[in-house]
Amino acid sequence: MNMKKIMSLVAASAFAVFALAGCGGDNGAGKAEAPKVLKVGSSIDFPPFEFQDEGQKEYQGFDMDLIRAIAKEMGRDVEIQNLGFDGLIPALQGKSIDLAISGMTINDERKANVRFSEPYYQSGLTMVVREDETAITRFADLKGKKVAVQIGTTSAAEVKKIDGVEITELNTPADCFMELKARGVDAVVNDRPVNDYFITKNAAKGVKTLEEKLTAEDYGIAINKDNEKLQNDVNAALKKLKENGEYDKIYAKWFGAKK
């Protein structure tokens, strides 16, 4: 074998070794390639689901913790983009994000444009009463009672539909709870997450949330209409988090222990 052939074989062998090394997913520095990034859109203005406290770098909230846990279960990293709520579905349709999580209600109009995960949270209007209250156990018991609601909210509109209720409209949920504790009203009606978060965050004593919901709506994770695989992967990860108790830990952090 002449020298030219020998050199050709050596060069070919070296190239083959280099090519095989590249196929192993090595980035050239002896480290495995990073997981594919999951691009997530959210409107970061809806505490306790998504918000950003002053001085905090990362976005916080129930949705933020949940989507990070889902991505981890899928073996992927997360890149969260702060978008206007009305821009989330167009961003999914344009494929600039992979999914959206933002306290988004699953409804037929949205389902015509995007896929949804299985529901991960059921919202709706709930009622808070004093812990020693026994006469009020459901919304039907509010006739002849005084109820505090936040002015301009859906809770105010819905409670006004109940006959015989004396309504006090106040500026904030905190004002409503203060009025309840001062015995100025018999009950407070608000969105479920608002009630649960306020009680948990403030470690409120002497009050309790009743289980009945005046209205109910499911929140889901929105996904591009064409991406059935991602929908299945998200559902599988969400199912696993509910089975292993991680979902309940995240829920308890923001809303207290599940009833």
Rank of each mutant, 00 (worst) to 15 (best):
residue 198 F to M: 08
residue 198 F to P: 03
residue 199 I to R: 05
residue 199 I to Y: 03
residue 199 I to N: 04
residue 200 T to C: 00
residue 200 T to L: 05
residue 200 T to G: 00
residue 200 T to A: 06
residue 200 T to K: 12
residue 201 K to Y: 11
residue 202 N to P: 10
residue 202 N to Y: 14
residue 202 N to Q: 11
residue 202 N to G: 09
residue 202 N to F: 10
residue 203 A to G: 14
residue 203 A to I: 02
residue 203 A to R: 05
residue 203 A to F: 04
residue 204 A to N: 15
residue 204 A to L: 15
residue 205 K to R: 14
residue 205 K to N: 13
residue 206 G to T: 05
residue 206 G to F: 03
residue 206 G to H: 01
residue 206 G to E: 03
residue 206 G to P: 00
residue 207 V to K: 08
residue 207 V to G: 05
residue 207 V to I: 07
residue 207 V to N: 06
residue 208 K to F: 13
residue 208 K to C: 10
residue 208 K to I: 15
residue 208 K to H: 15
residue 208 K to S: 15
residue 209 T to G: 07
residue 209 T to P: 09
residue 210 L to W: 08
residue 210 L to G: 02
residue 211 E to H: 09
residue 211 E to L: 10
residue 211 E to W: 03
residue 211 E to M: 09
residue 212 E to I: 09
residue 212 E to R: 12
residue 212 E to V: 08
residue 213 K to W: 05
residue 213 K to N: 11
residue 213 K to E: 11
residue 214 L to R: 12
residue 214 L to W: 15
residue 214 L to V: 13
residue 214 L to K: 14
residue 214 L to F: 15
residue 215 T to I: 02
residue 215 T to H: 02
residue 215 T to M: 03
residue 215 T to E: 02
residue 216 A to C: 06
residue 216 A to S: 15
residue 216 A to R: 07
residue 217 E to M: 13
residue 217 E to I: 09
residue 217 E to R: 12
residue 218 D to V: 05
residue 218 D to I: 06
residue 218 D to Y: 08
residue 219 Y to N: 05
residue 219 Y to D: 03
residue 219 Y to A: 01
residue 219 Y to P: 02
residue 220 G to E: 02
residue 220 G to T: 00
residue 220 G to W: 00
residue 221 I to M: 01
residue 221 I to N: 01
residue 221 I to L: 00
residue 221 I to G: 02
residue 221 I to S: 01
residue 221 I to V: 04
residue 223 I to D: 01
residue 223 I to H: 01
residue 223 I to K: 00
residue 224 N to G: 12
residue 224 N to T: 12
residue 224 N to E: 12
residue 224 N to V: 10
residue 224 N to S: 15
residue 224 N to Q: 14
residue 225 K to D: 08
residue 225 K to R: 10
residue 226 D to I: 03
residue 226 D to R: 04
residue 226 D to N: 07
residue 226 D to G: 02
residue 227 N to C: 04
residue 228 E to G: 10
residue 228 E to Q: 12
residue 229 K to L: 14
residue 229 K to Y: 07
residue 229 K to A: 13
residue 229 K to V: 13
residue 229 K to W: 07
residue 229 K to P: 10
